[in-house]
Design a binder for these strands. Sequence first.
DNA 1: AGATTTACGTCAGCCATGTTGACGCTTATG
DNA 2: CATAAGCGTCAACATGGCTGACGTAAATCT
Lengths: 181, 181
Amino acid sequence: MADVNLLRAVSPAAPIAASPQFLREAEIRRGIELLYFGYSNMVKGADVHLAAQGLGRAHHRALYFIARRPGMPIGDLLDLLNITKQSLSRVLGDLQARELVVQTVGTRDRRQRMLSLTAAGAALETELFECLRDGVTRAYGHAGQNAVTGFWTVLTGLIPPEDRPMIEALQQAAPAERSAA
Amino acid sequence: MADVNLLRAVSPAAPIAASPQFLREAEIRRGIELLYFGYSNMVKGADVHLAAQGLGRAHHRALYFIARRPGMPIGDLLDLLNITKQSLSRVLGDLQARELVVQTVGTRDRRQRMLSLTAAGAALETELFECLRDGVTRAYGHAGQNAVTGFWTVLTGLIPPEDRPMIEALQQAAPAERSAA
DNA sequence: AGATTTACGTCAGCCATGTTGACGCTTATG
DNA sequence: CATAAGCGTCAACATGGCTGACGTAAATCT
């Protein structure tokens, strides 16, 4: 194993506080790296669970957002995922074939297809959520409330302001009945 | 454009502080979502720059880590990227064909291939870094020093403890002369 | 010294997930 | 009634993962 080889002069246990001139290269790189490895590790467990069912990350993302906003139309999901409808259609086709997701005709606008999870879909999404949750809960718990707020603040700052409302809308309790355009 | 449709009851401008019981589902989901969108947006600019040269994200990751630890052997890079040698070899092949990366025989262990960037490789890596840097700098600046520390702390907590030394070693100034196993 | 292991290279094929372009249908809307 | 919007679908292609198998040089163990 080469694992140990990256270790040289060794590393303090706790993160060092951001310096007053916290915009220098080293601190930018640190953020980039932690974001990359943090994200990778967060989803690692879910990937395994997904693979066991013959599904991939793309399926998880769709399941996740549909769970988050039941009744969401396809167009909104496309905006969130930022992929083409052809890519999404493959994924949704798989999920529907497995009866994890169903479509219903929009009530206000009959051109729309509203997405929601079946009981089986919701159950799977819950399992996948738990894979992510364990890691996040531990990280939040060790870091403390203050750090979590900082974590949210920095990440929000990485998102272009015009995209933030879309993302913050996910956090509203109410399931989406889509507003008229 | 359906963008505006995800907007419903609307969103406060600044992030809300983590609640005392900050381990509940809503706050976990918020972290998951911000991490996903934050990461996606961070790399978006670099992706465009890469595509303009006919390269992909995989090439960037290799360039990035080689820039970070010049002289790093292949095995260490494999550990960081967590992919197979076959996947990496395609990427490194491309980078060498374009004379962005060179290999030299290991000094201590002649079986190893030490990786480093050519001048052109370093120049490209710098351009790509700047794509990421702009976003991160803005996010750090708006969030403030305290938030940045929290951001680091939570992300570090997402990484399994046994992997942290490898990642923290990236942040040591010194270029790697690989330690004997 | 000889056997074994390590570090790396390589060929071949497969899979997941993204892309572009084109065309069609139903429903809303001006 | 014409046009636009929301969605479905076919076809082809690119990227970047994967497995499996096999080879070679150098280090290490006995």
